[in-house]
Nucleic acid binder design. Structure first.
Lengths: 222, 222
DNA sequence: TAGATTGTTAATCGATTAACAATC
DNA sequence: TAGATTGTTAATCGATTAACAATC
C-alpha cells in the first residue's frame, strides 16, 4: 500500500500555483517577486508563502523579494520538474483525451508520450497528436522506454487491472483518475485524484456562507 | 476573497470516497460496514475513518459497524447532497466535455443542466445530452433558474471574465477548473481544482521512494 | 531615513494517532 | 465467553500564525 504519506503536503500542493504565477510574471518581465504579491494572488497570508518557499532552500532579498527566475528554478528543482517526466496514459476516453489536450503539463515537466486503450475504434487513431495503441502491446512498447509514470483514465472497473498491468511493466508511479482506490506494491507510488473531494469542500463552503447570511453576518467568515 | 477556510477540510475531502465505496457495498447487499473495511480500502487507519464519520453525527453498533444505508444517508446529508445541486458550466472544451460526460456526478447530487460557450462552431450542438448555449444568453437563461453553482472550464485568460459574468448573474459558488486564481466577492464561494497539485505530490513521492531504494530500505516509508 | 520584506524563533491551533472502556 | 468494533478522552504531531530583528 503505497499511498505514501508525504511531509508538508499542503505546501507541496501549493507549489504548482506559485510556479504558474511566477512563470507568468517572468514572461511579463518582472524581475523580482515578493511573498506579498504571491499571497495576494492566491488569497493567502504572506507568511504562508514565505514558509512554503523556505522548503526550496532559496533565499530572497529583504525589502525586495525573490529573483523571479531563481525562484522558478528553485521550485522546479524541488519538485523534480527540471527534467522531463515521460509518462504513459491508459484510457483515451473523454477524461484521458482532455488530459492529452492540456498543454499546461509541459510546463510541469510532464510529457505524455504513450497512450493505450482497448477500444478497437480508437486504436490507431490520433488524439491531440498521440497515436492510441492497443493495450495488448503495452509490454512491447513500454519496456524499451524505462518509463516510470503511468496515468489511469479508464472506467473504475478496469482501473485495478490497468494498474496491475502498469506495475508488471515496470511503472513506479501511478496517477489515478479513476474513481476507485488502487492496491499496489510498496515500492510503487500512487496519487489518486478525487475531484469529488473538491466538490465536497465547495458544498460545505456554500452551506457555511448561507448560514452566515442567515445570521446577518456580512463579514468574511474565513 | 472567498477562498473560505473550512474546518475539517481533510475529513470533508475523504467523504466522497467513503460514499462511493459505501454505495458500491450497498449495491452488493452488504448491510453493515465497519471502519476497518473502509480503512483497508483507502489505505488508512481505522481510527481516521472513525473520527471522520463522527462529524456526520451518525452512531454505529460496537462490534458490528454502521448500517450501510444509514451511513450513506448521513454522509449525503452532511454534504448537502441529498438535494440535487443544479449547476451550469462555462466552456465546453475538452475538459468541460469530459466533466459533462462524467456520470458519477449524479451520485453526488450534481446535475449540470446549462452549458455555455462562446465558440460559434459549438453553440447549438449537443455534448453528452446538453445543448451548448451562446454565453451571451447567460442572463436570459440563468436568471429564471435561480442557479447557485457555476463551473468554469474556459482557458485561463477567460476565467476571470467568466467568473464575473457568473457572479453578475447570481451564482453563489464557483468550481474553478481553469489554471488561475479567481477574485470574487466575499459572499461567493470558490473552489479551485489544481490537478498539478496532485502531480507535485506524486513527484515528491517518487523522489522519496527512489531515495529509500538507494538506501536499501525496502520497508514502508509512510 | 522610511518602508517593505526576508528569515527565524516562538505560540497557537487543529489534525492525527494512541489508548481503552463500553458494547454488540 | 471471545472477538470485533464503537465512542471518547488524552497525547502527539505538524501546520499555520504571530512577532520581530535584520536587511535591502
Amino acid at each position: 500500500m503505497a499511498n505514501l504519506k508525504v511531509p508538508k503536503a499542503p505546501t507541496i500542493r501549493r507549489m504548482p500555483t506559485y510556479l504558474q504565477k511566477l512563470v507568468e510574471l517572468h514572461a511579463e518581465g518582472v524581475p523580482f517577486v515578493s511573498t506579498t504579491v504571491l499571497a495576494n494572488y492566491m488569497n493567502l497570508e504572506s507568511i504562508v508563502v514565505r514558509k512554503d518557499l523556505e522548503i526550496t532552500g532559496i533565499s530572497g532579498q529583504p525589502g525586495v523579494g525573490y529573483k523571479t527566475d531563481e525562484l522558478i528554478a528553485a521550485i522546479r528543482k524541488f519538485l523534480g520538474w527540471n527534467n522531463v517526466f515521460e509518462a504513459c496514459l491508459v484510457g483515451a476516453g473523454s477524461l484521458g483525451s482532455a488530459l492529452l489536450g492540456y498543454e499546461g503539463f509541459e510546463g510541469y515537466g510532464l510529457r505524455i508520450s504513450l497512450v493505450f486503450d482497448s477500444d478497437h475504434r480508437k486504436i490507431g487513431t490520433t488524439i491531440h497528436g498521440r497515436i492510441i495503441h492497443d493495450i495488448k502491446r503495452i509490454t512491447e512498447l513500454l519496456k524499451p522506454c524505462a518509463m516510470r509514470l503511468g496515468m489511469i483514465c479508464v472506467p473504475s472497473a478496469y482501473a485495478q487491472p490497468a494498474a496491475d498491468l502498469l506495475v508488471a511493466n515496470g511503472i513506479k508511479a501511478i496517477w489515478n483518475f479513476a474513481n476507485v482506490s488502487l492496491q499496489v506494491p510498496d515500492d510503487v507510488a500512487v496519487q489518486r485524484e478525487v475531484i469529488a473531494g473538491g466538490f465536497a469542500l465547495l458544498s460545505v463552503k456554500i452551506a457555511q456562507l448561507e448560514a452566515a447570511k442567515k445570521n446577518g453576518e456580512v463579514r468574511n467568515v474565513g
